[in-house]
């Protein structure tokens, strides 16, 4: 194909957007709403993942060691615990029995000082506070830590871990299911809109076939037209995504307590990913618009 003819077809594709403005507008709206819903679903899935991750990071296993252990033995236990950092441990902090006692006194406050003073020996054990990166391995970690010589007990929030794992898995499955359903619904709507648009111009396609146009020659303007509408819809949906996402985040950010409880302190900042979202929306819009239009032409090309 000659370059001049290719540029003519590209021009025809862009001009067709205006000539078929009613169907173009319908395709644009459908694509824009679809991209908006998908983008928001992805962003909120990421945020839910971050929130669950933040809550997971607050998990702690308490490892109690014998009171009369020499410092060398305590150091040895510390080394063993730190060696698990390669696998699932994120941090290991040592709390001496004196620190633990002081911490308890402060927590109960001045009123209870007399009570603490009346206790002769410090009953608190030396303690390692171990945070896990992967809470699914909490049982395994607790069992291993218990087996270390000099450890007299381990306390782990098993129930909390199980609930978190269950929430995480549920959200993961739910997120994928919602996203998949949304994509399928959007594809069906986009395909049907494209089909309606192509159907309205079936005569034009038939004429092209009768004068000897190849399928590729006929498809190029439709492909360009679909892509052009898709890119515009991508930009528009990006604006709407930005507004919708920032509105929801601003509503949540007024509820500091809620944010802390939900672990949303390090939520995604739209500005940090705005270009990625714009590129993704435009790419997805162009792809859906172009492919949707071209796929819906199939039947009309058989003349």
């Amino acid at each position: 194909m000659k370059g001049s003819n290719f540029s003519y077809l590209v021009k025809q594709g862009v001009v067709s957007v205006w000539h078929n403005r009613v169907m173009s507008f319908a395709s644009f709206c459908i694509l824009m709403v679809s991209l908006l819903l998908i983008a928001l679903a992805v962003l909120f899935s990421i945020d839910i993942g971050i929130a669950i991750g933040n809550i997971e990071d607050t998990n702690e296993i308490l490892v109690f060691v014998e009171n009369d252990l020499p410092e060398s033995e305590i150091s040895y236990i510390s080394d063993i615990l730190n060696s698990y950092k390669n696998e699932y441990v994120s941090s290991v902090d040592f709390f001496s029995k004196e620190d633990a006692w002081e911490s308890e006194r402060e927590w109960f406050g001045e009123v209870m000082y007399i009570l603490f003073d009346s206790v002769g020996d410090n009953p608190m054990p030396h303690t390692f506070i171990v945070s896990l990166r992967d809470i699914t391995r909490m049982n395994e970690a607790a069992t291993r830590f218990s087996a270390i010589e000099g450890v007299i007990g381990v306390r782990a929030p098993y129930d909390f871990a199980e609930v978190l794992i269950s929430i995480r898995n549920t959200f993961a499955i739910l997120g994928i299911a919602i996203l998949a359903a949304l994509i399928v619904v959007c594809l069906v709507i986009i395909y049907n809109t494209a089909r309606a648009s192509v159907f309205a111009r079936r005569m034009q396609i038939s004429i092209m076939k009768h004068v000897g146009a190849t399928n590729a020659f006929i498809k190029i303007p439709f492909f360009i037209e679909g892509m052009f509408i898709g890119i515009i819809a991508g930009v528009a949906s990006w604006f709407l995504t930005k507004i919708a996402y920032e509105t929801v985040v601003s509503i949540f950010s007024e509820e500091i307590m809620l944010i802390q409880v939900l672990g949303l302190t390090s939520i995604t900042d739209f500005n940090d990913i705005r270009w990625i979202v714009l590129a993704a929306n435009c790419f997805a819009g162009a792809l859906l618009g172009a492919v949707g239009t071209v796929f819906s032409m199939g039947k009309h090309l058989k003349v």
Binding site: N20, Q204, I207, H210, V211, G212
Partner: peptide, 29 residues
């Protein structure tokens, strides 16, 4: 089909192309 010319009862001109473009279209093809 490029070796034949077709004329139809209902003309079958492409509505959004001018007369010139309709004729030129077959040459572009």
């Amino acid at each position: 089909r490029r070796s034949i010319g077709m004329i139809f009862q209902d003309f079958r001109l492409i509505p959004n192309l001018t007369v010139y473009e309709n004729v030129a279209f077959v040459l572009r093809v």
